[in-house]
């Protein structure tokens, strides 16, 4: 039965449950005064109710449907998403310029560009534009390795 329950849906509902439970527990532990729980308590109660409705509905739909949900492109999306998370983390480690250059190059290649020279050239020009243009408007210091 649960084999037909889409993995991404189960992951989302699990995430909503875990986050709501953790925030509610944390808020109640911090203080059980009305002022502290005025939003948390009713919202958590509604989420719990909605989760029951959605899980029941999803299981019913999974039983009714004989086809498995389309998962094509899922791994490609996950790869790009992981690359993006890594890029965000690397910005202050590798430097904004190097991280951006590598991510844009890799992203273009992953999106199906066949040319060998266009992606690195575009990526280099785009990185220079970002560092010298966009970055110069930031009121904060920005780590760069090359530029």
């Amino acid at each position: 039965m649960l084999g037909k329950f889409p993995a991404t849906h189960a992951a989302l509902l699990g995430f909503i449950f875990a986050v709501s439970a953790f925030i509610t527990w944390s808020a109640v532990s911090a203080s059980s005064s009305l002022n502290n729980l005025v939003v948390v308590a009713p919202v958590a109660a509604v989420i719990a109710l909605l989760l029951v409705v959605l899980v029941a509905k999803a299981i019913r739909e999974a039983n009714a449907s004989s086809e498995t949900s389309q998962q094509s492109g899922l791994w490609g999306d996950l790869l790009l998403l992981s690359g993006f998370a890594l890029f965000c983390f690397a910005l202050t480690k590798l430097g904004f310029d190097v991280a951006t250059f590598l991510f844009v190059w890799g992203g273009i290649a992953l999106s199906g560009e066949k040319s060998l020279w266009k992606p690195p050239l575009f990526s280099a020009l785009f990185t220079i534009f970002l560092v010298k243009g966009f970055g110069s408007l930031f009121p904060y210091p920005m780590l760069t390795m090359v530029l």
């Binding site: 790009l80 890029f87 910005l91 904004f96 844009v104 785009f126 970002l130 904060y140």
Partner: peptide, 15 residues
């Protein structure tokens, strides 16, 4: 070309 470039800009925007 657009997707990785705008994704990079999104992260820069967050910063």
């Amino acid at each position: 070309y657009l997707v990785p470039s705008v994704l990079a800009m999104c992260a820069w925007g967050g910063y």
